[in-house]
Every structure is written in structure tokens, then in C-alpha cells.
């Protein structure tokens, strides 16, 4: 009987520790308040970040890709996630968000009401975004159309449906450390930013551990697709064997050096990358060739 109060105490302590450790990141409006957003620059961030690839309605093409109504399904080992509406609709989109809300979501994976987002939203990459890019992106996104489609709830079973647990996951996997540490030219630095932050290339091209965190030791060495039905190729220099020109041309046109053509999600990536200046595609190529 005597042990009982101790056990209870330990449990309470454990719970308190869990609660403390899994606290969502606070909002930080001051950081963004001093910056001014640029719509044109924000459009480039939007394409480099690939926002529409996931948040446009399923099957949307052309201008319809700018209606960020959500609804695409992402089947994973942890459940099926549905991309939410991030259009400017006030009730069902994110039209009511402040720039600080967007920054907190992108860089810490936390919603305006203080809940953890699932990492199907690649905030582990966006964590490396500059504050200026957040502000520019915000400026651009406010120019996009509103859509009233309500976001669909994710289909996630126990224990993954306890969002608070994601706080522990974030302690393990969420940081803004660069992976390529020796980016010693402006081009490599830009390439690193495009690949590791905005482009979130590693989210598909790098394998994940049992808990779903990226294995940075196996950076860009290829991985199973999220639904487990196929493989995402390795894009390290050794595996790919492409020149810088080949990589840049692929990102612009979708054509591999042997003139196969990109499919699946990568076709969306190519559409986005084709909207960037050619220097950006060259920078991505330089980065990929600097790996290993």
C-alpha cells in the first residue's frame, strides 16, 4: 500500500514531463512584424515550396492549381492524411491567419490554436525557411482565390491520433540544421536552401526510420513510396550519374538524359521547378552533385 502514493507521484511526474516536453511551439509575431512581403518573390517561394502540388484539389491542372482547396489523400503506414484547404477562405481555409500564424505553421508545424500538425506537412524541411520567404509567401498567398471546401479529417488510428505525442517526435526530428555542411559557394548555398528547405526533396528521396523520421545518414539515397507500392529513386551523384546540365534540364522539361519523362508526384515538381529562374535549377544541380 505504501508504494501507491509513490507510483501515483511518479505517474503525475511522468505526465507533467510529457506535457512539458510535448508543448507546441509558441507564436512569435514580433519576428515577422518588422518585415514587408513581396508578392512576386512570394510566387517564387510558392513554386519552389511546391504548395499547390499537395494542396490543390485532386486532379487540378493549370490555373485550377492556384485554388488551394485541399482534399488530396496521402496513404502512409500511420494512416491516411488529407491535405487541408489552405485557400483564402475565412472559415474553411486560412484566410483568417496572420503572417505569424503561417510562420509558426511552416517552421514549427504548429496550428494557430496551438496543436501539432502531422509531419505529412513537411515542416521538418520548411523549418529552414528564412523569415523573409515566409512573409513573401504570405503576401502571395493572400492574392489567391478563396474556396469553401471544408478540410477532410485525417484517418489516423491510436496512438498516432494523439497529436500531443507529436511533440516528442518533434524533439527527435524537428530542427533547422543543414544536412550538407560545406556549402561554401553562393550557388551551393542557394541549392541547399532550395533542396533542404523549400523543395523538401528529402521528404520523398530519403528513407525514414521506424518512427517516420528522416534518416539523414542516408540522405537522398532513395526510399519506398509513402504507400509502399513503389520506389522513389536515389538522387546522389553515384546513383544518378547525371551531369549538372542533365539535372537542370530534367527539372525544366521532365526529360531524363535517356528521354524518359517524369511521372507521378515528380511531374508536379517539374512543373513547379520550370517556373523558377534557370539559376535556381542550376543551383539544385550543383547541390545534388556536392552530396556524398
Amino acid at each position: 500500500m505504501r508504494i501507491f502514493p509513490y507510483a501515483l507521484g511518479a505517474a503525475a511526474l511522468g505526465f507533467a514531463a510529457f506535457w512539458l516536453l510535448t508543448r507546441p511551439a509558441p507564436s512569435d509575431p514580433a519576428v515577422f512584424a518588422v518585415l514587408t512581403g513581396d508578392v512576386t518573390a512570394g510566387e517564387q517561394v510558392f513554386y519552389a515550396g511546391g504548395c499547390a502540388s499537395c494542396h490543390a484539389a485532386p486532379g487540378a491542372e493549370g490555373d485550377a492549381k492556384l485554388i488551394l482547396a485541399g482534399g488530396q489523400a496521402f496513404a502512409t503506414d500511420f494512416g491516411t492524411f488529407y491535405a487541408p484547404n489552405i485557400s483564402t477562405n475565412m472559415d474553411n481555409g486560412i484566410g483568417a491567419w496572420t503572417v505569424a500564424d503561417l510562420g509558426r505553421a511552416l517552421k514549427t508545424g504548429t496550428s494557430p490554436d496551438g496543436r501539432h500538425y502531422y509531419p505529412a506537412f513537411p515542416y521538418t524541411s520548411y523549418a529552414r525557411m528564412t523569415d523573409q520567404d515566409v512573409v513573401d509567401l504570405y503576401a502571395y498567398m493572400t492574392t489567391l482565390p478563396a474556396d469553401p471546401t471544408p478540410s477532410r479529417a485525417h484517418e489516423v488510428g491510436f496512438p498516432f491520433n494523439i497529436r500531443r505525442g507529436l511533440g516528442l517526435w518533434k524533439l527527435l526530428y524537428l530542427n533547422d540544421d543543414p544536412v550538407l555542411t560545406n556549402a561554401d559557394t553562393p550557388e551551393l548555398e542557394r541549392g541547399r536552401y532550395l533542396v533542404e528547405a523549400l523543395g523538401h526533396c528529402a521528404e520523398c528521396h530519403t528513407p525514414r526510420g521506424a518512427l517516420g523520421g528522416l534518416d539523414t545518414a542516408a540522405w537522398m539515397t532513395g526510399a519506398p513510396t509513402a504507400d509502399g507500392k513503389g520506389k522513389v529513386p536515389a538522387i546522389t551523384p553515384g546513383a544518378l550519374g547525371w551531369s549538372a546540365g542533365d539535372i537542370a534540364y530534367y527539372l525544366e522539361t521532365g526529360f531524363t538524359p535517356d528521354f524518359d519523362s517524369a511521372g507521378g508526384h515528380m511531374a508536379d515538381v517539374v512543373t513547379n521547378m520550370a517556373n523558377l529562374p534557370s539559376e535556381d535549377r542550376d543551383a539544385i544541380a550543383a547541390y545534388l552533385l556536392a552530396l556524398e
Binding site: 507500392k229 529513386p233 511521372g263
Partner: peptide
């Protein structure tokens, strides 16, 4: 360019990833 676009449009919707 438009030929590449046509290739990509079909591959995006209808081709499975490599195995």
C-alpha cells in the same frame, strides 16, 4: 516543350513509380 508537357501530363496521372 509542349511534347514534354504531354508526356508529363499522362505520366503524372497514369504511371506507377518504378519498382
Amino acid at each position: 516543350g509542349p511534347v514534354g508537357g504531354a508526356c508529363g501530363a499522362c505520366h503524372k496521372a497514369y504511371r506507377a513509380p518504378a519498382n
